[in-house]
């Protein structure tokens, strides 16, 4: 099998989504099996045609898996990622030979998984975004493998703990489960997790961070 990871954050390598990908890979790359893994960034419009082509090409591999990692935007998928999904679906429904082969594929369909980075405390607020991705997967004749909604992800890249420890204890459990499922091609229910600290602590820390950023711009919130 081969795994393509799609980073749907506009901030790309400097983002909570990127930090989640790194933690996921730490869970995924344990064990002896070597799995071919590639990461694609989706944001810049000029790069998207290449990304779409790479995505379609990946789907033609034997037992392909795709993991989407993206920030929650207003309860749904960020518009640039939604555009990517529409373009790829359009490509697959076109009469090209590669598209027909993907559309008619009955066995070893590609599996789509997701991790959503949610700025609110409750990871469950990612539920609608995961459903949208699941609906799209069905439309392009792929299987929905399941997703993880991670709450309290604002500032995730600044969390000092190693995945599976400290504030990332629960997140580590979910990412390990996701890694296990992807490696074995298991389709599971969506699950929701978050950083291991009380909501009041997250809320206060986030508000202090926003107030500081505003103050640096001479703005009072």
């Amino acid at each position: 099998m081969s795994l393509l990871i799609i980073n749907g954050s506009p901030k790309q390598d400097n983002s909570s989504s990127h930090a989640l990908i790194e933690d996921f890979l730490e869970c995924f790359n344990t064990g002896s099996t070597e799995i071919n893994t590639k990461i694609l960034n989706i944001f810049k419009r000029q790069d998207n045609e290449i990304a779409e082509y790479k995505f379609i090409k990946h789907l033609t591999q034997p037992s392909p898996c795709v993991l989407f990692v993206f920030p929650l935007y207003l309860d749904g998928i960020p518009s640039h990622l939604l555009s990517f999904m529409c373009s790829t679906a359009e490509y697959i429904s076109s009469p090209r030979p590669i598209s027909r082969a993907l559309k008619d594929r009955q066995q070893s369909k590609a599996k789509i998984y997701a991790i959503v980075n949610c700025g609110f405390y409750e990871g469950s607020q990612s539920g609608v975004a995961l459903r949208i991705l699941e609906n799209w997967a069905r439309r392009i004749n792929c299987e929905w493998g399941g997703g993880v909604g991670v709450g309290a992800c604002g500032g995730y890249s600044r969390f000092k703990s190693k995945v599976g420890h400290g504030v990332k204890k629960n997140i580590g459990k979910s990412l390990r489960r996701l890694s296990y499922n992807i490696k074995r091609g298991i389709c599971a229910q969506n699950e929701y997790t978050g950083a291991a600290f009380p909501r009041i602590v997250y809320k206060s820390a986030a508000e202090i961070a926003f107030a500081k950023m505003a103050s640096d711009n001479n703005v009072r919130l």
């Binding site: 749904g76 939604l82 949208i132």
Partner: peptide, 10 residues
């Protein structure tokens, strides 16, 4: 659009 708004509206 898959249960979402279209990319423009979103």
């Amino acid at each position: 659009t898959y249960g979402s708004f279209s990319p423009f509206v979103k």
